[in-house]
Every structure is written in C-alpha cells, then in structure tokens.
C-alpha cells in the first residue's frame, strides 16, 4: 500500500547539520527512508513518514540526530490520554 504516512507536522525528529559528519548510518537504519544524504550531510527529506522509532538517533556517532522515541499501542495511548502513568502497554 505504498509509503505509510501519518499526521502532518507532529514528528519530533531533529537534525543538527553542524554536528553531522555525513556517515550515513541514519539512512541505513531508517525503516521509512525519512533521511537522505546531500553534499556530505544528512537531511530530513520525508519528515511525515517518520514513526519515531529512534534508530537514527541511537546509531548516530555524532549525536546529530534527536527524536523523541517511545512505545505506543492502543493501551499505551489510552493510558496516556487518561493521564495514567506508564507509557507502555506491558
């Protein structure tokens, strides 16, 4: 069914181009091809496809990528909406 895209402009993914060394690790681990490499620096090309899994930030040796990653299934979402503790379902 093609690329999965979510609600627009809510993704917390950030890239610090000053710190980026252009190693390309974030491109490799991203399951939704959100990032691209141009002129020796990573770039967020498809922000709304990001699902905030956190793989890019975890694997960035220069700490240039940050994203507010987290767990979420229906139970977790409902818990969060009700203001209960524990963002996880398990």
């Amino acid at each position: 069914m093609g690329q999965l895209v979510y609600i627009k402009d809510v993704v917390t993914l950030k890239l610090d181009r000053e710190k980026c060394t252009g190693c390309g690790m974030c491109l490799l681990v991203c399951p939704h091809t959100v990032l691209s490499l141009t002129n020796g620096s990573a770039e967020i090309e498809n922000r709304d496809a990001c699902m905030e899994c956190g793989a890019c930030a975890q694997n960035c040796p220069a700490d240039a990528v940050t994203v507010n990653a987290g767990v979420g299934c229906a139970t977790a979402v409902i818990n969060a909406a009700l203001g209960r503790e524990g963002g996880s379902c398990c």
């Binding site: 979510y6 609600i7 809510v10 993704v11 990001c50 699902m51 905030e52 899994c53 990653a69 987290g70 767990v71 979420g72 299934c73 229906a74 977790a76 979402v77 969060a80 996880s88 379902c89 398990c90």
Partner: peptide, 14 residues
C-alpha cells in the same frame, strides 16, 4: 506483539 512491547508511537497515528 500486542502485549509484548508494541513499539512505535501511535500518537502520530491517531
């Protein structure tokens, strides 16, 4: 993995 650790933020989805 419903109970086990379903990863991924539903916030962006719902």
């Amino acid at each position: 993995e419903l109970e086990k650790g379903c990863f991924f933020k539903t916030r962006t989805i719902f």
